[in-house]
Design a protein around this nucleic acid. Structure first.
Lengths: 354, 354
DNA sequence: GAATTGTGAGCGCTCACAATT
DNA sequence: GAATTGTGAGCGCTCACAATT
């Protein structure tokens, strides 16, 4: 035998020796397999305890060609939605006793996606969950996963048509949310509605816009489409500031930040919110409740999105591909006027989902 | 040879055959080792490219008993500080081409720490970084890491005295930040300063308080210590609301949220901020700039904290233990009065760090 | 025959050393 | 002798099967 640094690590062989069984029996016990006599199992468990044995997952992965690891790639930095989604993924993964390997990138670092993905895939995760609303990044992720035959779940972006690797899509039903945002303003008496869209590259922004436009069409009201913003407060301010007085009596912004900026611009010009202009944002992030007036917003269940993404990933490994859309919820706050009439009639037209 | 499902996976042996070299030479190339002839290296690289070979990290870990993986355990949920720290860790890890295995828990889930840690340690990370300001959680983490001889880095909590496993501490210099917050108010004419502390279990809250109290003592001003809050806007509101009029002309709150709540309470009673009471928070999170008046805050470089934590973790694996404190920065906004006099004289007394 | 336990090879790398140029 | 390349065992598990109760 060669001279190799002898580690003091305990292996299943040590446990087996102490328990007086074979290594395979120990393997059966740590994998909770059936067909081990209760007494034997107990002896093995005692030995594990006594020696402080802990299974080496690298050895297991290598031998079984499977891992108990989920990979997560997010391009959302530390902004609220992506963070909450990633947190939901972790909660669900912990419940299934899966390890989570993650790579968090910031927006506009698409060039870093292949490198990050390579690092993740080297660990051979059972599946990869992409948390991104950047269509280009999602495309890159899908392509590389297809190449390496890694099952993947997209949250927020459009799934491709490829079929080399199993994949699924979990998303928030942003279209319906966009539609409801407009309908909430209509129900509150607004008739000249302006829409501040999010950036073109964002799938989220696109679907919200589709819903907004659809609502306007369906209800036969003109929609004032404002310039595209980049999600920031500053952009919301600038865009709302360019409006002529009286041009709108309601504003839907594609996210909370831009809605907050819009409110600030209106207030700076002495326009009352919600008296003269009502405003609704998207996300219902933590800042929505803090501003004055507090911001009404379409609440998107990012946490649930993460949980469903894990479920979809596990389904994939069992051969089932899912395509889930999660419903949003209107949160009424100070930036809109209260309404006495029930909105049920308008709201109920939406298709059920989840 | 037994019948075993033959995977189509390419290994270094496949690469070696194609390149006409031994598997060891391939290993040398993929590990960037010296002493491989340039021509040979190129042939191997070409073969890797051609076959789409990707190293299996499980095999590498098993054979070398080392991994290129960093484990991260956070108890901060998706709130700003912890998220930004975790993001910083990811940025730095990516730069070093390290995989990141993470477990994100929410506050008050201390009971989940051992389970989460077990899952992480099974992967045998080169080191673990704890992102928590919960002393109890940090204690548990330290104990378990010591047991399994895993190097660990604490961010935000106090390191223990154990010496079984190498460990380091990286933190934000919260004491100095607390001191400066008070001094900024003093420099702006405030003389009756109230302090809203964070929860007792939080190490962050404790160090901020130490600095605040020290500043008051040093400058010989009375400090009105208010009841302890739980970081929420609501707590800040409640605590500030319990103040008698004129009791304070300056408030330092242990975080932005509580500071925002305090401002709202004051404004609700018709007290002008910053006219009658000036307010300073901690964190400089995204909400600080959004409220009205915008909130002055002690900016803590969470991102840098994460980056330094990775550096400390790498140092640990080379046998160096570091203990780093990162300086904070005052961000002046609308919730304090402007001052014409330079603050350099008061500010300069602080010891240099990082 | 059913339930339980054991045997030995193999997963894909790295390590220590040997062999070749 | 220095630079480069090769050999075979071993890391700690699981797999497929065999052997035992």
């Amino acid at each position: 035998m060669r001279e190799r640094a002898r580690h003091d690590r305990t292996t299943i062989y040590d446990v087996a020796r102490l328990a007086g069984v074979s290594h395979q029996t120990v393997s059966r016990v740590i994998n909770n397999e059936l067909g081990v006599a209760a007494r034997t199992r107990q002896r093995v468990l005692d030995s594990i305890q006594q020696l402080g044995y802990r299974r080496r997952s690298a050895a297991r992965s290598l031998a079984s060609s499977t891992s108990q690891t989920l990979a997560v790639l997010s391009t959302g930095g530390c902004s609220y939605g992506p963070s909450a989604t990633v947190l939901g993924i972790h909660r669900a993964a912990a419940r299934h006793r899966l390890a989570v390997l993650s790579s968090l990138l910031e927006r506009h670092t698409a060039s870093a996606v292949p490198g990050a993905l390579g690092l993740l895939l080297a660990e051979e995760p059972m599946a990869l969950i992409a948390v991104t609303d950047d269509e280009q990044a999602a495309g890159t992720i899908a392509r590389i996963c297809e190449q390496s035959r890694t099952p993947y779940v997209l949250t927020g972006a459009t799934p491709p048509n490829n079929e080399l690797a199993p994949h699924a899509s979990v998303r928030l039903d942003q279209e319906t949310a966009g539609q409801e945002a407009v309908e909430q303003l209509l129900a509150r008496g607004a008739r000249r509605i302006g829409y501040i869209p999010g950036p073109r590259f964002s799938a989220d922004a696109q679907s919200r816009q589709v819903g907004v436009l659809r609502a306007a069409t369906q209800h036969g009201i003109p929609l004032r489409r404002l310039p595209e913003g980049d999600w920031t407060v500053k952009a919301g301010f600038r865009i709302a500031d360019s409006l002529r007085s009286d041009e709108v009596d309601g504003i839907v912004a594609a996210n909370d930040r831009m809605a907050i900026g819009a409110i600030q611009a209106l207030q700076a010009r002495g326009v009352s919110v919600p008296g003269e202009v009502q405003v609704i944002g998207f996300d219902d992030g933590p800042e929505a409740a803090l501003v004055d007036p507090s911001l009404s917003s379409m609440r998107l269940s990012f946490d649930l999105l993460g949980v469903m993404a894990v479920r979809a990933a596990l389904d994939l490994t069992r051969g089932t591909a899912s395509d889930v859309a999660i419903r949003s919820q209107f949160v009424e706050r100070g930036s809109v006027r209260t309404t006495r009439t029930s909105l049920a009639r308008i709201g109920d037209r939406r298709p059920a989902a989840v």
